[in-house]
């Protein structure tokens, strides 16, 4: 069994730099195994190199898949994360 969720990314830097790191940290601390996919390419959400290599930009749609404990809860928190803009203005 697994659950999936489609999310549009809101961070103005997409999943680069700091937002990517925070996202991977969140995925690592989840009870479930999470993958994130953009288009055809799917990677382990706990892998910063995998997440960076997706090159996710603001406004991109990504598909999250969770398998294991607390699937829905994990997807809820990751979805909230992706819908928030994590970039501070400089």
């Amino acid at each position: 069994m697994s659950s999936t969720r489609t999310v549009t990314v809101a961070s103005s830097q997409g999943l680069h730099a700091r937002p990517a790191k925070l996202f991977v940290e969140a995925a690592q601390s989840a009870g479930a195994e999470v993958t994130i996919a953009k288009g055809e390419k799917s990677v382990n959400a706990a892998s910063i190199l995998g997440v960076l290599s997706l090159g996710v930009e603001k406004g991109d749609e990504v598909v999250l898949t969770a398998e294991g404990e607390n699937e829905e809860q994990t997807l809820d928190s990751l979805e909230t994360f992706l819908k928030t803009d994590h970039d501070e203005a400089s």
């Binding site: 700091r18 790191k21 991977v24 940290e25 892998s47 910063i48 190199l49 995998g50």
Partner: peptide, 19 residues
């Protein structure tokens, strides 16, 4: 500060499961 994020991201790269 911001350097902390850069260094922590490097630590994550070292331990990256794909790698």
């Amino acid at each position: 500060g911001t350097a902390k994020d850069v260094l922590e991201a490097q630590a994550m790269m070292a331990q990256d499961p794909t790698l």
